[in-house]
Computed example of a mutant assay.
Amino acid sequence: MSQVVLQAHGLVKRFGGITATDHVNLSLQLGARHALIGPNGAGKTTLINLLTGVLPPTEGRIELLGQDISHLPSHQRVARGLVRTFQINQLFASMTPLQTLAMVVSQRRGLGARWWPKLGQDAAVVARCEELLALFRLTEVMHQNTAALPYGKRRLLEMAIALACEPKVLLLDEPVAGVPAGEREELLQTVAALPADVSVLLIEHDMDLVFEFADRITVLVNGAVLTEGTPDVIANDPQVKAVYLGHGEEVRT
């Protein structure tokens, strides 16, 4: 039986009289490629904010590797292996990809603020940075300031930072949002090549990416789970088709 690495039990989030998340149950298996989809206003971002500790739940609990993390702050969840990317880049504009990754890798390895003088001196840090730069196709731009990078490369750098945190669970929040068509293919190929031992929860509106990437899909509507299943089951579900067609979208494989 597959190991469950991340589990939400009856998650509820209320803002006054509005229920943004309505008794959501979600299980992420070890090595999963799991997508969370739903129309605008379905509660996807609220659910991710609950899972990552940005918001406290009104009811319910969250477990990571069998441990209750419902009330842990975000940084402690990251330390335990639950890492996310964001819809909008949150990068250091004046730093290069190499400097950024060296800082993250060094801090992860306990070097803290001493990363800068050790850049190039710690063989293990250098090796990990080179590995991440290659995996995320950033080697050619590793010495350029982040502010000067094409938008697609900045999205790749954000994913590289997340992986540098050595996640057990990686939440990808709309990784191709705003990426120009000419830069999308590189990003899609990189997402597909993420390490198999990292369990991924993808939040995305791009149905081509969802059906290409996911082995399981959860559909959220009005804060509640409408249905869950394999891509084939979801693509042919009449309820899902009705929800998406009602919002001008087409579910396709």
Results as ranks from 00 to 15, higher is better:
Ala164Trp: 00
Ala127Ile: 01
Ala177Val: 13
Ala124His: 13
Ala102Trp: 08
His143Tyr: 12
Leu132Lys: 00
Glu185Phe: 03
Val179Met: 03
Lys118Ala: 08
Lys153Ser: 04
Leu163Ala: 01
Arg109Thr: 05
Val179Thr: 04
Glu140Val: 09
Ala148Gln: 07
Ala164Lys: 01
Pro97Gly: 14
Phe92Pro: 15
Val176Pro: 00
Leu156Pro: 00
Leu111His: 13
Glu131Trp: 04
Asn145Cys: 15
Gln99His: 10
Asp173Gly: 07
Lys168Glu: 06
Leu138Cys: 00
Ala124Val: 09
Glu166Asp: 11
Gln87Leu: 09
Arg80Asn: 07
Ser94Thr: 03
Arg109Tyr: 08
Leu135His: 10
Glu131Asp: 09
Ala147Gln: 12
Thr139Tyr: 12
Glu185Arg: 13
Phe86Pro: 02
Glu140Gln: 09
Tyr151Ala: 10
Val105Thr: 13
Arg155Lys: 15
Tyr151Met: 14
Cys129Val: 15
Glu186Ser: 12
Ser94Ile: 01
Asp173Leu: 03
Thr146Trp: 15
Met142His: 07
Arg84Asp: 15
Met142Ser: 11
Ser106Ile: 13
Arg108Gly: 14
Arg137Thr: 12
Val125Asp: 07
Ile88Asp: 00
Cys129Ala: 07
Thr96His: 04
Gly120Glu: 05
Met142Glu: 11
Val125Asn: 03
Val104His: 02
Met142Asp: 12
Asp122Glu: 10
Ala164Phe: 00
Ala134Phe: 06
Gln107Thr: 10
Gln90Ser: 15
Phe92Thr: 13
Val105Asp: 02
Glu174Ser: 06
Ala124Cys: 01
Met95Lys: 06
Arg154Phe: 05
Gln90His: 07
Arg108Lys: 08
Glu183Gln: 05
Gly120Asn: 09
Thr96Gln: 10
Lys168Tyr: 02
Leu163Gly: 03
Arg108Cys: 11
Gly182Ala: 06
Ala162Tyr: 12
Met95Val: 11
Gln121Val: 06
Asp122Cys: 06
Pro180Thr: 10
Pro180Asp: 11
Gln144Tyr: 04
Glu130Trp: 00
Gly120Asp: 11
Glu130Ala: 03
Arg109Met: 15
Thr85Phe: 08
Leu172Gly: 03
Val176Tyr: 01
Phe86Asn: 01
Leu163Asn: 04
Val141Leu: 10
Leu111Cys: 11
Ala123Tyr: 08
Ala162Arg: 15
Gly178Pro: 08
Pro117Cys: 05
Leu138Glu: 02
Arg80Leu: 15
Leu149Gln: 09
Ala134Pro: 05
Val83Gln: 06
Met95Tyr: 03
Gly120Ile: 14
Gln87Met: 09
Ile161Tyr: 03
Gly178Phe: 10
Met95Ile: 09
Gln107Pro: 00
Arg84Leu: 08
Glu183Val: 05
Glu131Ala: 06
Ala147Met: 14
Cys129Met: 05
Leu101Arg: 00
Leu149Ser: 09
Gln87Phe: 14
Ala162Ser: 11
Leu172Glu: 01
Gly152Lys: 05
Gln99Val: 06
Pro150Met: 08
Val169Lys: 07
Val104Ala: 14
Pro167Ala: 04
Gly182Thr: 06
